[in-house]
């Protein structure tokens, strides 16, 4: 059992490893010119330089702060809207069409207006991120609450539960897995958008480091940026995933049956 799990994880590493070897081979022999794609070793050195000079940490801190605020703002408002629409039919009738309309708009389409309204400083970035984070959170919360099986609600109707007990006994436990998925989607969206926002508007941040590096043709720095973004995003999702298993793990398997 344990062995099988480890084996399955190892399978996922095979192709990345092959790609890495190919990358190393093609770049170190300069079959691909270094201006287009730097060699792994160069990347590693550049990363080490950025790391030891403190530049990377400083910019990461800025990006993560923005993600944090944007994520919180988006997740909370999305959760509130989703909950309100899920629990109260009139709210759903009034707001769901508007929400469905709003969510068709790619978040990047808001950039011109957001800049016009908020300038290009922190508020722009945070609000931009929260727009993106808001949508999956509202959607998944609504979905979770709407998906509460009617058969369970009938059981508690027979027991004459008050609304609070219905909420606590049936709705929350039943909707939680979906809400938790919403949270994860919301965080990864926020992380993508912070890079987007920083590519657009100057200031510190990991995206901005990449913009500047591209202008200076420092492809190695750009690539370090790409890898750091990937690893951070991966790590954030893993952490949320672990928290989810920790708090809902049992729960999820029970719901799944």
């Amino acid at each position: 059992m344990k062995f099988q799990i480890i084996k399955n994880k190892l399978l996922g590493l095979i192709i990345p490893l092959i790609l890495y070897v190919a990358w190393d081979f093609l770049t170190s022999r300069e079959i691909i010119p270094p201006e287009l794609l730097p060699a792994p070793k160069v990347i590693f050195d550049t990363w080490w330089d950025l790391q030891s000079s403190g530049e990377l940490a400083l910019n990461m801190k800025m990006s993560l702060l923005r993600v944090g605020f944007g994520f919180l703002l988006g997740a909370i408002s999305g959760f509130l809207l989703g909950t309100a629409m899920g629990l109260w039919k009139p709210v759903e009738l009034y707001l769901n069409p508007l929400f469905n309309f709003f969510r068709q708009i790619p978040v990047v389409a808001w950039i011109p207006f957001l800049i016009l309204w908020l300038g290009i400083d922190e508020w722009f970035k945070i609000v931009f991120i929260s727009f993106g984070a808001f949508i999956p959170m509202a959607l998944k919360t609504l979905e979770g609450i709407k998906g509460v099986p009617a058969s369970y609600l009938e059981v508690v109707r027979v027991f004459e539960y008050g609304w609070f007990r219905v909420l606590r006994t049936v709705i929350v436990p039943s909707a939680l897995p979906s809400i938790s998925t919403g949270l994860r989607l919301c965080l990864s969206e926020a992380w993508m958008l912070v890079i987007g926002a920083e590519l657009v508007a100057a200031g510190e941040g990991i995206g901005n480091v990449m913009v500047i590096a591209r202008r200076l043709f420092q492809t190695d720095v750009v690539l370090v940026g790409v890898i750091v973004i990937a690893i951070t995003g991966f790590a954030m999702d893993k952490v949320l995933g672990l928290l989810e298993t920790r708090f809902l793990g049992l729960h999820r398997s029970q719901n799944a049956q």
Partner: peptide, 26 residues
């Protein structure tokens, strides 16, 4: 519906997130 009329549904409808003890105590 009322507490005076108990029902055992065709599908048992135990809540999957509650232990048997808690289900029975509902």
């Amino acid at each position: 519906p009322s507490l005076k009329r108990g029902v055992v549904f065709q599908d048992h409808r135990l809540l999957p997130w509650l232990s048997i003890e808690k289900n029975v105590g509902m």
